[in-house]
């Protein structure tokens, strides 16, 4: 459903050009949760912005249902890393979640329903009238997730969404993503620098090289589909997979 074909990106500035991504090819099937992991500075965010249609690629293309992506597709939602900067501070939690639906011309009763449901699904049913800055970092990221969920996207992109929250919150949010992904059957591309997180969440893990970036490995995660923070992470297979990914990334860093 989501195809990334020979995608490349070179940043051109006068007298200097930086090849961020050399060539990336992989695809994400409908309803799949794929994690992209790579060493820091390998162009993960560049990849995600290109997939989202926020950044024109230098070569190759991204196709959604066979249609080349040239701008942000209408049924795609993104959760950014910087939760503190992706919510509108002058709006309440409710208004933040509702705004994209208004622009999508969703009728008011349905809008109310969607906002209520999505806020409840991330455990923020009571915080609707608060402003984002009155909430903790983890809760702010929940609001951003609720906004993405309420948008009823076909594809959900996540750009290191939990890089800036504490470990306990992070585990909770990972399980939240797994639950939402299962309930909504939404195709999800999850970018992270955290190997454990990638192996824990993904059905597949795409391992990227360092910049200029290529795909080093497209790894199927053959863990039981039901994931659990304690159980899954203590499986021998989990350890093997994370060790494997870790060694690939170490090799990538040279």
């Amino acid at each position: 459903m989501l195809e990334i074909a020979q995608l490349s990106k070179t940043y051109e500035s006068p007298g200097r050009s930086v090849e961020a991504i050399r060539s990336l090819t992989f695809d994400v099937a409908a309803g799949e949760l794929v994690c992209v992991v790579g060493p820091s500075g390998c162009g993960k965010t560049t990849l995600l912005r290109a997939v989202a249609g926020l950044l024109p690629a230098s070569g190759g293309e991204v196709r959604l249902d066979g249609v080349p992506v040239t701008g942000p597709p209408p049924r795609m939602a993104v959760v950014f890393q910087e939760y503190g900067r992706s919510l509108f501070p002058w709006m309440t939690v409710w208004q933040n979640v509702e705004l994209p639906l208004k622009e999508k011309k969703v009728p008011a009763p349905r809008r109310r329903e969607l906002v209520t449901q999505s806020l409840e699904s991330v455990g923020l049913g009571d915080a609707a009238r608060a402003h984002p800055w009155q909430l903790s970092g983890g809760m702010q990221q929940r609001v951003a997730i609720a906004r993405a969920v309420a948008y009823e996207p076909q594809v959900m992109l996540m750009d290191e969404p939990f890089a800036a929250v504490d470990a306990q919150t992070r585990a909770d949010l990972e399980d939240l993503i797994l639950r939402l992904w299962r309930d909504l059957e939404v195709t999800t591309l999850f970018v992270t620098h955290d190997i454990d997180e990638a192996v824990y969440l993904g059905q597949r893990v795409i391992v990227l090289s360092s910049s200029p970036t290529v795909v080093m490995e497209d790894l199927k995660i053959d863990l039981p589909p039901e994931r659990d923070q304690l159980g899954t992470r203590s499986l021998p297979r989990f350890g093997e997979l994370r060790g494997h990914v870790y060694s690939r990334i170490q090799a990538a860093r040279g």
Partner: peptide, 24 residues
Amino acid sequence: EVLADTCRMYGIRGWPRVRGFVLR
């Protein structure tokens, strides 16, 4: 810029963008 990207992603453009994002 992150808010600007957010607007683009969620199709917020034209006057709602100016009123709800740029001016605020």
